[in-house]
Design a binder for these strands. Sequence first.
DNA 1: CGCCACGGCTGGCACGTTTTAATGAACGCC
DNA 2: GGCGTTCATTAAAACGTGCCAGCCGTGGCG
Lengths: 344, 344
Amino acid sequence: MSTGSTGGTVSIKEVAARAGVSPGTVSNVLNRPHKVAAETRTRVEKVIRELGFVRHGSASTLRAGHSRTIGLSVIDIGNPFFTDVAAGVEDVASDLGYAVILGNSSGDHAKEERNLRVFAEQRVRGLLITPSGEDPARLDAIRDRGISLVLVDHPAHRSDQCSVAVNDITGGRTAADHLIAGGAARLAYVTGPLTIRQCLDRMTGAGQAVAAAGLDPVAGLEVVEMPAMNARAGQRAAEKMVAEGRLPDAIFCANDLLALGLLRGLLQAGVRVPDDVALIGYDDIDFAAASAVSLSSIRQPTYKLGRIATELLLDECDNPESHAHQQIMFQPELVARESTRRDR
Amino acid sequence: MSTGSTGGTVSIKEVAARAGVSPGTVSNVLNRPHKVAAETRTRVEKVIRELGFVRHGSASTLRAGHSRTIGLSVIDIGNPFFTDVAAGVEDVASDLGYAVILGNSSGDHAKEERNLRVFAEQRVRGLLITPSGEDPARLDAIRDRGISLVLVDHPAHRSDQCSVAVNDITGGRTAADHLIAGGAARLAYVTGPLTIRQCLDRMTGAGQAVAAAGLDPVAGLEVVEMPAMNARAGQRAAEKMVAEGRLPDAIFCANDLLALGLLRGLLQAGVRVPDDVALIGYDDIDFAAASAVSLSSIRQPTYKLGRIATELLLDECDNPESHAHQQIMFQPELVARESTRRDR
DNA sequence: CGCCACGGCTGGCACGTTTTAATGAACGCC
DNA sequence: GGCGTTCATTAAAACGTGCCAGCCGTGGCG
């Protein structure tokens, strides 16, 4: 522990005075050490340590015109999918000296708007966003403000923008194919709002699989749309389907939270999984493997999504000339477990 | 959508010019609207909208001497416990116009240090921290810098500081009592590093229960210390205990992630839960109820923890005089499920 | 009628940093 | 020995906002 008991805050000026140099030199020590004579540099660094000086980020941002923070706007921080993404983001950002400002929209459009405003006020260097709705104009407005943008889990609709996504149509088709291969002829798709692109794409993929298998495109895929995408909504969906007495052969859930809730609801109602109904989720969150009946799912490279998105973003920020915009699309992967075991 | 196509950034000065007032008046409109005549105010507000002006947070921070951001330092953002806390924090902060900067230490002391440095650079108004180790001096150093501090999930050791915690000793005792009441005589405690206070306290509580039940204080509570507190560590603990062939009557895990991993490991090894071994976790995360054998646990008011911590912090920031420091201690609650069912 | 009070607004300085042009010192070269 | 060159450092001007002192005009009161 050093002597830095200055009580308040210590500025570059005080460091300069104590080290017998000008403030400019201290600034150089901080930002362009190579431009400073070795002896001077070590002397200044010593004073910095002694005084416990830490650079005033706001002053720096104000002068430099840009900050060392990025914004991360997600739809539901309670969903392990986004948590994994956030972990990837945080790791990369932290390594490169950036701070991450977290914004959780809870699917609420107004709240997302408010978060974006906060990001704008903070003059974040860049923004990672999982847009909750289709609204290109709003995103363009942000870009016009000079804030770099990378779409996370959402393909870009223009080539001058980075995005990192996973093919949800393929994922939906893979899931439905798997269920059909297991012998299901009547499928249900339990989803969140279909205004969410992911939900819609996964449905599209499932529809393709149903059609390709020669099943009835309407009766073959019943769609159950819930207002939320958490475990509670899944449980309610189960209760609803059981109450209405029309259970399909197999159920595909738009994410694992829905699937886990649904699973619980089915089991409580005495429905056996996979014997009575097969079940598959989406995301392959950690808890999918540990559930009552281990849950089949579609795995996405979540952590990697966060890492790569952040790398793209910071590359765009730090090397604006050499940066090449990329739209990266990963392919999801089937993870078959007990909930779709076919030996029935 | 307004006409705000200024391309770059628009300052208070331009707003002032366009509205025919001085910059000071615009500042007043933003910060002390009541000091401005209604007519002038609406005119300025109109221009603000038209130009798409958004306040430069850094300039504001620099001048005002404090920012509208708070730091949140957690140990593992992948743990639903912390996610719930973060959700509570985000909700309150967002409501009061504060931005949350997220720092995830992953239990890494150096990384936590680095995050604290970033927080200091950003001149966060306050800091919510779940300290990963006992190091009061470091926290005091932060307070000396004038940054308000609220300890989350950790009782304060001094009365001039706010903290929000849950009684872990009680929780540990409750868990062990429950296992003993179920007929267990030989308990094991599977935990993360005992340098973590929570792990230690829960062990202390369990030890009290063992002693109170008249069991052997040594043989009655075997301690298995793992380097991490996630599902993987839990699974490894199970494999280890099974391999060594000495399974206790009941296992108490320091958190649900460990317990879920352990549960999976036990089931894979053919050990029946609760028939062969009873199992209880800690935190009562959402997924505890949905696991293979639904998991008994100790519930903590997680979301509330985050909310109240943030409310205390922002009260301390915004009303420094009237603020009364509080050390809040919640009591945890037993949630009994299948994994400790006693009819064996 | 003169004076004061007050509401409403303006002007300008300060916050801490970065950056650019200028300054000084040291040095080799014609 | 003067001169250009290089290197290390300095002085000063921004960046956009918040705050304070002060200005002006109006209206009430003695």
